[in-house]
Structure formats: structure tokens, C-alpha cells
Nucleic acid binder design. Sequence first.
RNA 1: GGGGGUGUAGUUCAGUUUGGUUAGAACGCCGGCCUGUCACGCCGGAGGUCGCGAGUUCGAGUCUCGUCGCUCCCGCCA
Length: 590
Amino acid sequence: MRRTHHCYILGAEDTGKEVTLMGWVQRRRDHGGVIFIDLRDREGITQVVFNPERNPEVHAKAHGLRGEFVIGVRGTVELRPEGMSNPNLKTGGIEVMVSELKILNKAETPPFMIEDRVDVSENLRLKYRHLDLRRPNIQKNIILRHKASAAVREFLNREGFLDLETPFLTRSTPEGARDYLVPSRVNPGNFYALPQSPQLFKQLFMISGFDKYYQIARCFRDEDLRADRQPEFTQIDMEMSFVGEEDIMGISEKMMQYLFKSVLDTDIAPPFQRLTYDEAIDRYGLDKPDIRFGLELKDLSDIVENSDFKVFSSVVKKGGIVKAINAKGCIDFSRKELDDLTDFVAIYRARGMAWIKVKEDGWQSPIAKFFSDGEKQAMAERLNMEAGDLILFGADTPKVVNESLGNLRNHLGKRLGLIDESAFAFTWVTHFPMFDYDETEKRYQALHHPFTSPLEEDFERLESEPLAVRSRAYDLVLNGFELGGGSIRVHRTDLQRKIFKSLGMEAEEYEEKFGFLLSALDSGAPPHGGIAFGLDRLVMLLCRESSIRDVIPFPKTQKAACLLTNAPSEVSKAQLIELALKLRKIKTED
RNA sequence: GGGGGUGUAGUUCAGUUUGGUUAGAACGCCGGCCUGUCACGCCGGAGGUCGCGAGUUCGAGUCUCGUCGCUCCCGCCA
């Protein structure tokens, strides 16, 4: 018996054909006489019929069929009797009258039904992921993922990019995320690190003259998980020589356009909006703004700096800021709702949240009495206040105000239904700061990575004023998610050394760790730059899912475990000895 | 490391507020009947370590303490 067709492709035009289908028993409807089986494969469902009058032997055998049995059926495509077609099914007009049934394998009753509408805990889904992956919804996601990476490859191949591989076993680097380490058996006591990204290797490809590189590359970062973050994830990684920001952004936009067209048949229209980092923070509070709705933040620091409301004025005098959101028409928020919003901003360390309800005859607010008429007037104008509005304030350090109000803005956008869920709103964020200051380690850190080129006009401030240096880094943001980011790289040794120095590295240290890069840059490195996109996040947004676990075939749980295989696991003593490793007992508190 | 949510039949849940008879429902599963269903229908049945452990009590799914899993978030993620 050999399969001739997939389920879900047969139609009225196939009437009379003898076909052989193979698949899983989705559902059995046994009428005592006639038996109907919904046969499922990856393409869909076809109804197959066992009729005792037509073929009593096969009909008897079909009594034993159960859910998820794997069967093959040979039979004739027939139009369904008058009035019996099923308009909910593409193949609902026909059925296959079975003349031969082969049970290819039996199956235990699965722990959950293989259907989209069955609500089942993620725990169980992940333990039986092979069954979960049979469900049409998730199968659709995984197939869409394939289409997305296929489209990326088609596009980049056509544009002259070369798909080049880079090592998984590589060197641990001091900066960035925590590395996954792999012990070396042949070099006892030494470790490889799994790559956080192929960053340095793709730069070396440019130095070698390959000109345009891409790779759909697995990356590893040993950090805590989120709904949109796994410890191993996939990047669409690109690098180009002799380019500037416009070239990279341009090719990225064209790639997204091609991808959305071929995967979703959706037209998106480059060029995408561009925001500088400063503008994004100013208007949205976050460096990954969701631009599908308004509710923008307004800075009021200059207005309240000298007001009688000491909470505001003292914050501004200490270098902090005061910003506000106008929640249009939300005057009816109850005391409890306002308390909930205050609890929400407290997550981001905001210590309180002042508010004003704008009424026809004035402000209702615990803080209204502190402001002069002039200050009120200025605030009303800047926030475009109208009767019925609710104004929400943040006053603290810039970081706390922007993060809390930025997240509050997203929260309100969802809650108030301001978001067009069908929209794909892209924006670039450019001109990121080169460094930020790590309070715990008391030193500067590269915001993107240390191989990012500063803006040329800021070179001179590298030593004198590192926090004022802007970089040639850019992020692509989609619907409030960071889809990807990249930069124009440093291609001159002297500049690269200066940056290592700004990061607090001694010459000895960077020569030891990055000497190979410095020597490569000295060998005739072309100007180059690139970008990397998170494929998991991108596919999640394409599928309109809210977790990347729904677009990764075998995802990890929040504790970084695989429930299917029970990884990670202990290893044998012999393995440890071979690797020259000794485990230390971790003390548990009594 | 911290905060929130959650855990009861194979599955999804109710029951926990106020401790009290034999822990219920739906779907699924098993058996019977049924020749046009398509989430088939009807009848019957099986199925429980109430996450785990300790404590309080005459008595704990319910109260207390501890612990574990899963999840969302903060920190972290160059």
C-alpha cells in the first residue's frame, strides 16, 4: 500500500478516483452500521467511510479503530449524498469509500485531545510535545516558521549574501550575558563557551573579504527566561562590507517586506518610521516603543521646577524629571483602579503616582492646590487637557519615570483597547548611547556591544564624557518588541583599543581576550556593519502568539528545562572524571 | 535573588470563604444500541496519593508551617 494523496487536497473533481490516504484517526463516528473516520495528516482532514453493505470485512475491522491509530486506506473518492456535505471542511463535499484498511500502528489514548480547541496546561503539552505538535494550530505555527526562514534565505541568496557557518564551540568572552560553558576533555580544566551570537566570526568574514554574510544561527545565553526569551534562540544574522546605516536598514526593510508578503501575503510599506533613541525615550519612555497608539509622555519638568509641590520641584532640582500621560476620557477611573495603576508603576520602582481628573469646572486632584494658575495653564496646554481626561504623573530619576510611565502607557493601551491588533507597526530606533553605567560593578558598559562604532562627531568625548557618546547602533522594533538590532562596527585598531579602555579594560586584558580581533583589524579590515533579528520573536508576531514557546518546536520551561527529555540531568561519575570535573555539594538550609 | 498567579478524575474546572455523610460536572475513556454522521445520538460503567511533607483537630481538599512543579513580571538578558 502506497500513499497517493495527502488529506485535504481531494475535491469534487477527484470523484471516481481510486486513492490511498495515510494518517491518524482524528475522530470515529460509529453508527452501528456505517462508520465515519476523520483521517488527519499535516495538510488537514478527509472523511473516510466504512459501509457494511459495500464491504463487510473491512467494516468489521474498522470497529477496532481508536483515536490516533495510524492507518492507511484505499478507496474511491465519492461525492457525498445530497445535503450531507460539510461546509466547514474544504474536503466536506467528498468522502473516500474504503475498500481496504491497513492498521499501520495502534496508539494509547493520548493524555489530551489532538484538537485546537482543547484547553490543556502547558506543562502537559510540553511533556507530550510530540502529541501537542500534532495539533493543527501549533503545526501551522511551526510550518509558518519554516516559510519565514525559507523566505529569508530566498531573499538573501538573491541579494548576494553567502550562508556561512560559524563554530558553536568557541571562546568565553568577558562582556555580555552569562555564557553556557562546555568542558574540554582534551584540555582538562579548560572550557569552551557556546556563542551568544556569531558576532566576531561574522566580522572576521568581512575582514576575509566575503562581503555579504548571513546565517540563521542558534545563539545561547544563560540568563533567566521570559515569554519572549529562551536560553537558546535563533537569529537571522547578517553582516555587510563597505556599508553605512542606510544600507543595512534598507536591506532589512526589503527583507521584511519580502518576508511578510511571502508568509502572510501582507504588504508592509518601507521605509519604516525612524526615531532617535532620545526621541523614543522622550515620547514613549522605552527604547522599543509600541507606536500603534498615542498616549505619549510629556515632560513637565520645566513647568513644575519652581512649583509649591515639593515632591515635583525637589525631584527636578535633584536632576530628576516629571512626566505625565493624558489618558483621554478616563475620568471615571475609580479609586481602586487608580490604586491598581499605582501598584503597576511600583513594579518599576516608582514610589507613587499623582493624578488629576479634569472636570468642566476645574481639577479634581490631591495635588491641584499646590500649583499656580500659570503652572496649571502651562500643564493644561502641554497635555492638551480637556474635560473628562485623567492625567497620570511620574516624578523620579529619568530612568524610573521613563520605564514606569513607558510600561504604564503600554498597559493602558491594551486596557483601553487603543491597539489595532491587526497592525504591524515597525519603527527604527537609532543613535543609541554608546555606554551606560553599571552601578553594581561601578564601570561603563557597552549598551550594544564593544565592537560598535561611535558616531564620528562624538569620538573626542570617548574619554572625557563617555555617557554622552552616541553609537552607530540601530534597533528594529515591531509592535513594541525588539525584533533585532545591529550597528556599524569599529574597523580601526586604535579606535577599538580606545573603546576597550573606556570599558575599564587594561591593555593586557584586551590583548589577551581580543588580540585576535585587533590583529585582524590591523590586517586590512573594510568598513562593515550588520544586524541580527530574533527569528523566534518575529515568528511569534507573525503567528500572533504571545509566547515564543508556541513557535519553537521543543521549547524550554521557565526553569530552562525540557519536560520531554528531562534535560538538564545529572551525569555519571565516569563522565565527570573524564572531564576532570568535581561537583561541589550545594548546601541546603535546614 | 525578589514579587504575583496557579496546582482537585486522563483533561478542563467547581468545591476551600464558614473544617463534618460516600469529593462533583463536562469532555475524554470502556461496554451496549444505532446505516449519513462530522464536537453524531441514546443507555450503562470504570476512573481520585485533592502537587508533596509535617502540624492543629474527634475529624483537613478546606486551617497553619514547610517544600516542589508550572507560569507572568522585576532584577538579569554586551
